Simulated scan of single mutants.
Amino acid sequence: MRHLSITGFYPDDRQDDSLQFELDIEGTELNEKVAHLIESKPLNEVEPGELLLSESQVMTLSELLGVSFPEGLEYFMGTCAKQ
């Protein structure tokens, strides 16, 4: 089963590529909502890989997920396989 994950890294100019934030989105319904919000398609149609999120997408995800995202990071959404 696939699910979505959000990761955060410092911008490239910081020259630190270590992972600073990670959030696995739990639950089928919530994953579907996020897929529709970010990609405008169902989760099963979201392509593998990572997508850079805009500031407005991060703000909307913060409200939807009830999560405070640390400032100053670039955020990416990707698909993961749950085993």
Rank of each mutant, 00 (worst) to 15 (best):
S62M: 05
A35Y: 04
S56G: 00
V46I: 10
V67N: 03
D12W: 11
E39V: 00
F9T: 14
E71T: 04
L19V: 10
L53Y: 14
P70T: 01
P70F: 02
A35C: 05
D17W: 14
E74V: 12
N31P: 09
V58P: 01
L19W: 13
T28L: 02
A81F: 11
F69P: 08
E32Q: 11
G8P: 04
T79N: 11
L64V: 08
Y10E: 15
Y10S: 12
E63C: 00
Q15C: 12
N44A: 07
M77S: 01
E22D: 11
V58L: 02
K82S: 11
H36I: 00
G27W: 04
E74Y: 10
Y75S: 03
S56D: 09
R2Y: 13
P42A: 00
G78H: 06
D24E: 15
L19H: 13
S5K: 10
A35S: 14
E45Q: 12
D13W: 13
G49H: 00
P48F: 08
A35H: 06
E74S: 11
L51Q: 09
A35M: 04
I25Y: 05
V58S: 01
F76M: 09
L30F: 03
S56V: 06
V67C: 02
M59G: 10
E32T: 01
L65I: 00
E45P: 02
E26H: 12
R2N: 15
G78P: 05
D12Y: 13
L19R: 12
E74P: 06
S54Q: 09
S56T: 12
L19A: 14
L30D: 04
N31V: 07
I6W: 01
E63V: 01
L4H: 06
E29H: 05
P11S: 11
G72W: 00
G66W: 03
G72E: 03
C80S: 11
F9P: 09
L53Q: 15
E63F: 00
D13H: 15
P48Y: 00
V34R: 10
Y10L: 15
I25C: 05
Q20L: 04
G66A: 02
G27C: 02
D16A: 10
H3A: 07
S18V: 10
C80V: 13
